[in-house]
Simulated scan of single mutants.
Amino acid sequence: MSDGLPAAALLADTYLPGQLFAMVRADTRLMACLRAARSLELPDWYLAAGCIRNLVWDRLHGYAEPSGAQDIDLVYFDPASPPEHDLDLEQQLNRAYPAGWEVVNQAHVHRWYRGPLGDPTTQLKSTLDGLSRWPEQATCIGLRLDAKDVLKLAAPCGLEDLFTLRWRRNPRVADNATVLRRAEEKRVAARWPRVLIGD
């Protein structure tokens, strides 16, 4: 679907993707990052998490400039690629377009990630599977730009929390204490005072 959702993550609120795409297309930095990521031709890739959430929440708060650090999370899925390749990709991206890149191959996350209680995660099946397991629903979002400059969205938890300014847990993986701790670490209340934190 053009500038729309994959079948695995269709939303009832179909107007929200359009709002998101408009914000992204108006942001020259994020569009440049999308083009830089696309140039790597990685399988099943998305820019994800904070770089999207931060943009939307800054806009919804009326900020003319970014409210804080704007790291760029690039995720992809390639079981054949060695884990150390992620660092090579980060260095390549930062040389081409310095932006504080963090690159993570979701095919290897199960080797090092531990959940809120220290429990290991099961092996992921795709990037979308990885997105669906991130702690906050407003962060479970990925965007990519195809060869025709069409935006593609993955939103396994929907976009409602993103646009209603909710920082709450993804019930599939996180408890409320984890989400509250992460909100403090990321200074959510100070950075975006209209955000409602917790369940």
Rank of each mutant, 00 (worst) to 15 (best):
M1A: 08
L10N: 00
D13I: 03
T14A: 11
L16F: 08
G18I: 04
A22W: 03
M23H: 08
V24A: 07
R25F: 03
T28E: 10
A32G: 13
L40A: 08
P43F: 00
D44K: 05
W45N: 04
Y46D: 01
Y46V: 09
A49D: 02
G50W: 05
C51E: 05
I52M: 13
N54R: 01
W57S: 00
D58N: 08
R59I: 00
G62N: 02
Y63I: 00
P66T: 10
P66H: 12
S67Q: 08
A69G: 12
A80M: 14
A80L: 10
E90V: 12
E90T: 14
E90A: 07
Q91I: 10
N94I: 03
A96F: 02
A99S: 15
W101S: 06
W101A: 04
W101K: 04
E102P: 01
E102S: 15
E102D: 13
H110E: 10
G115W: 03
P116F: 14
L117M: 14
D119Y: 00
T122W: 05
L124Q: 15
T127C: 11
G130N: 02
A138L: 06
G142I: 12
G142R: 09
L153P: 05
E160L: 10
N176H: 11
A177F: 12
V179A: 06
L180N: 02
A189D: 12
A190P: 00
R191Q: 14
R191H: 04
W192M: 02
